[in-house]
């Protein structure tokens, strides 16, 4: 750094606060990761390196069960949310402005605005009525609930991509004898896929991470990984929780890097 001369971008103390901010963000995460490898049962006193907690998490049937359930829900919820979001994004970007557009937009984004606890309680009420009426207590409730709050997360990147696309390309395809379906399949879709993939990944991660809505909607014995972890809080915390967290953390880091790269792909 050149000391002489006036740095117009400098603001006194901002650099220090920023570094403090990054330290604040990462210290707990690093400690969490480090102690997942602790050979002792403490999450604060280091006793040596070991994989034991990863092994014990892997062999824990409840964890296995919750992991599979989390993945199944996240898969279906993100698949449903992404498909309907693609259609909704096409409707809101590829047809002229219409009455009810604002209302439709508000509805799609509702899960972003309404506090999760409010939605969770509302779903608890609705689904408890349906559960009593139909007797069905399967995973479908969780999948639909997750799909609903994943829709805006899938919708926004897809819509952004559609809006960034050159409309004359689709007109050129129509001009060259492509029917509306062929325009979508041969011109829109090939350019849209980074947006779709980004939206699907975002939806998948959001579903995988959900605690509150799952906690209220799940029937007995339907723990997902996050609700299982929340339940463990009442017991003694062992580094097994750290091990599970570290694995989930790894998935998140992978996803965010992939997402960043995807959104960099130019139209």
């Amino acid at each position: 750094m050149a000391k002489h001369g006036f740095d117009i971008k400098k603001q006194t103390g901002f650099g220090t606060i920023a570094i403090a901010c990054f330290i604040l963000l990462y210290t707990p995460i690093f400690l969490l990761i480090i102690y997942s490898f602790n050979s002792g049962t403490s999450i604060a006193a280091w006793e040596g390196f070991s994989w034991r907690w990863y092994v014990s998490a892997w062999e824990n049937e409840q964890v296995q069960d919750a992991t599979v359930r989390s993945l199944v829900i996240a898969f279906w919820a993100s698949a449903i949310a992404t498909s309907v979001a693609v259609m909704a994004a096409l409707a809101t970007t590829r047809t002229p402005k219409f009455k009810g557009q604002t209302a439709a937009f508000a509805m799609i984004n509702q899960p972003l605005m309404v506090p999760e606890i409010v939605t969770a309680v509302a779903l608890l009420i609705l689904f408890s009525v349906i559960k009593v009426a139909t007797g069905y207590t399967g995973l479908l409730y969780l999948i639909i609930a997750h799909a609903a709050f994943c829709i805006p997360f899938a919708y926004l990147p897809i819509r952004a991509r559609l809006q960034g696309m050159d409309l004359s390309l689709e007109q050129a395809a129509a001009d060259l004898y492509a029917s509306p379906f062929l325009v979508f399949r041969r011109v829109t879709l090939p350019q849209l896929w980074p947006g779709i993939l980004a939206g699907a990944m975002l939806a998948f991660v959001i579903s995988l991470d959900d605690v509150v809505i799952t906690e209220f909607v799940k029937s007995a014995g339907q723990d997902t990984l996050p609700t299982y972890m929340l339940g463990q809080l009442r017991r003694v915390i062992t580094p097994e929780i750290n091990a599970i967290s570290t694995v989930l953390l790894g998935i998140s880091v992978f996803m965010v890097v992939a997402f960043t790269l995807l959104s960099k792909i130019r139209n």
Partner: peptide, 12 residues
């Protein structure tokens, strides 16, 4: 058929 002002060539 149309020749577009922006050409509208399919980038993919």
């Amino acid at each position: 058929n149309t020749v577009f002002q922006s050409y509208a060539l399919f980038p993919h």
